[in-house]
């Protein structure tokens, strides 16, 4: 047991294998539900490719799990602006996701100008800027500009929401 526990420790990558396995199972289950009408014009049917894809995902899942338990690990992606020496900074990610979700909840009801302002301001805050007033003004300006830009320039009416009639 202890050896298994120590093996599992720090192997969050097994989660990826689990995800692949779940995706594979889902694809296969869904494929099983499909009916294949016998047809001269479509001998392959709608099932074949999902079954291949599901099988590929399951194989990858098992292969990855074995690989990880044997000590393999995926190389995190580097980049110009990325410092991999410190661990993932959840204090930045969670507020960012929060701002994103707030936008999803607000956009249809409050309208893009409000939700977009919340999104940008919240993201900038999450990323560490503390110039509240300046950020607020920039957020509002961006949301307003894109609202009118999309409406007048591209003919796409973004929702006005609460500000209907004012904008």
């Amino acid at each position: 047991m202890t050896s298994l526990a120590s093996r599992l420790k720090g192997r969050s990558e097994l989660g990826v294998a689990a995800l692949l396995g779940a995706a594979g199972a889902l694809v296969l289950l869904d494929a099983a539900r499909l009916v294949t009408p016998y047809s001269q014009s479509d001998p392959v049917g709608p099932k074949t490719v999902p079954i291949i894809v599901g099988a590929l995902l399951l194989v990858c899942s098992v292969w990855l799990a074995v690989n990880v338990l044997r000590g393999g690990h995926g190389e995190a992606e580097g980049g110009e602006d990325i410092d991999l020496t410190h661990p993932a900074d959840w204090k930045t990610i969670l507020p960012l996701a929060g701002a994103f979700i707030a936008n999803i909840l607000l956009i249809d009801w409050a309208g893009w100008v409000i939700s977009g302002t919340v999104l940008f301001w919240g993201s900038v805050w999450a990323l560490g800027s503390r110039h509240y007033v300046r950020d607020g003004l920039i957020s509002l300006a961006l949301a307003l500009l894109t609202f009118y830009g999309f409406y007048l320039g591209l003919g796409i009416p973004l929702p006005a929401g609460l500000l209907e009639g004012i904008l």
């Binding site: 994103f100 936008n103 999104l119 900038v124 990323l127 560490g128 591209l154």
Partner: peptide, 17 residues
Amino acid sequence: PYLYAGILFFATLGAYS
């Protein structure tokens, strides 16, 4: 902050539109 907030902002806008 402005760069990455901007990416998220325009990503949202684009996907929604």
